[in-house]
Amino acid sequence: ELSWTAEAEKMLGKVPFFVRKKVRKNTDNYAREIGEPVVTADVFRKAKEHLG
């Protein structure tokens, strides 16, 4: 699991709890794919757009 900024964690907190774990995993995987060592708010937004 990658490191997350406080802002990205806050955004994740707005995701319904029953899918939060999956969203975190998918976002981590997306960040790795694009070469990001940390999940930022920008990476979170891009993952959301990319993953739907």
Rank of each mutant, 00 (worst) to 15 (best):
V15T: 06
E36T: 08
H50G: 07
E33R: 11
V38M: 10
A41Q: 06
E36A: 15
A47G: 04
K48I: 14
V19Q: 14
F44G: 00
L12E: 00
L2E: 03
V43E: 01
I34V: 10
P16F: 05
A8G: 02
L12A: 02
L2D: 02
A8L: 00
E33H: 11
V19F: 13
N29E: 12
W4T: 01
K48M: 15
D28V: 08
D42S: 08
A6N: 09
L2G: 04
P16N: 06
R24M: 05
H50P: 04
K25V: 12
K14C: 09
R45L: 13
I34E: 06
I34C: 08
F17Y: 11
P37A: 13
K46S: 08
P16I: 04
K10Q: 12
V19I: 14
R32D: 03
K22P: 04
G35Y: 04
G52L: 14
T5K: 02
E7N: 05
E36K: 05
T5N: 05
A47H: 06
R20E: 02
E7V: 05
I34Y: 08
V43W: 02
K14T: 08
A47K: 02
V39E: 00
F44A: 02
K48R: 15
V38I: 13
F18L: 10
A31K: 01
T40S: 06
T27R: 02
R24C: 03
T5Q: 03
Y30E: 01
K10T: 11
N26A: 15
A8I: 00
R20M: 04
R45I: 11
N29Y: 09
L51T: 09
E9C: 10
G13L: 15
K48C: 12
K48S: 14
V43K: 02
K21P: 10
R24V: 03
P37E: 11
D28F: 03
V43L: 08
G52M: 14
V23M: 09
I34N: 10
P37C: 11
T40A: 02
E49V: 10
E49F: 11
V39R: 00
A6M: 11
G13Y: 12
N26P: 01
D28K: 02
I34M: 13
T27F: 09
V19Y: 15
L2W: 04
V19K: 13
E9W: 14
P37G: 09
E7L: 06
V39C: 02
M11G: 03
R24Q: 06
K21D: 15
K21C: 13
S3M: 14
E9V: 11
R32A: 06
V38W: 06
R32H: 06
E49A: 13
V38P: 00
G13I: 10
D28H: 04
A31T: 03
D28M: 09
K25E: 14
K14H: 08
D42A: 09
T27W: 04
H50C: 07
V15G: 02
A6R: 10
L51W: 15
W4F: 00
R45V: 10
E33Y: 12
K48T: 13
V38R: 07
A8D: 00
F44C: 02
A8H: 01
V38A: 06
V38Y: 07
V23F: 09
F17G: 08
K14S: 08
K48Q: 15
K14M: 12
K10Y: 13
G13N: 15
K10S: 10
E9H: 06
H50Q: 09
L2R: 06
I34L: 10
R20S: 03
P37H: 11
E1R: 13
R32G: 04
F18Q: 11
N26E: 15
T5C: 04
V19S: 13
D42N: 07
V23W: 11
F17S: 09
